[in-house]
Write a protein that binds this DNA or RNA. Structure first.
Lengths: 103, 103
DNA sequence: CATATACATCGAAAAGATTAGACATTTAAT
DNA sequence: ATTAAATGTCTAATCTTTTCGATGTATATG
């Protein structure tokens, strides 16, 4: 048993924590799955297929961006989002490796 | 763009959703990381290293069990928990494969 | 059978997350 | 300089999750 309740969360888990939280919400999962391969979507497009208001979508996009699940770039008046696929692939791989090696 | 906002969550994601939610909470992450390799812990042991009350720990264990992150078995008066490592390894692998193939 | 142990559940309070309207900001076009 | 378009932020209401004391249930033990 690892009793070190205060310092026990390793780095790979800390970074993953926000990913778990970000993807634990069904609206945010739907946003993620709205993207086709390599596609970039602006906020208006995401709002258009969502059932939520624009502020709500904006809120969820912020959480996804802060978790590094999505990247964003402002071009003119628009803000484009896309999936941070390298990060997600690496992170899920890391978690699986951590499981294999430590748990 | 995938505009099918209502039916778009694939099976692998539906099952994963509860895992994300379960692991999105820091208390539940700490519980998971309390286990050593292949170890089985009873509720009392988990409560002992936690900063939470027994009902709170019980609540989190229920969520982890329902997400299939942990397995449990009652033996006598005690309930033992252990990490469902095969499921976690498989599920994180599935998610990574899904990312590679679809996003 | 009475008591103790280990755990789960109930219920209410507290904390936190989500939501949408109103407002603010940035950028482009006239 | 005005106006319009795209997006972000603020705020308050609502909803959900978390929390713990109290109570309930199952199992073992004297």
């Amino acid at each position: 048993m690892n009793p070190d309740y205060s310092r026990s969360i390793p780095q790979v888990w800390r970074r993953m924590s926000r990913v778990f939280t970000a993807l634990g919400d069904e609206h945010r999962q739907r946003i993620l799955l709205t993207f086709d391969r390599g596609e970039r979507l602006n906020v208006g497009q995401i709002v258009a297929v969502s059932t939520l208001s624009r502020p709500a979508v904006s809120h969820h996009l912020k959480i996804l961006r802060e978790a590094e699940v999505l990247c964003s770039e402002k071009i003119g008046k628009e803000v484009f989002f896309w999936i941070n696929k390298p990060f997600l692939t690496e992170t899920f791989g890391n978690v699986r490796d951590y499981l294999d090696q430590n748990l």
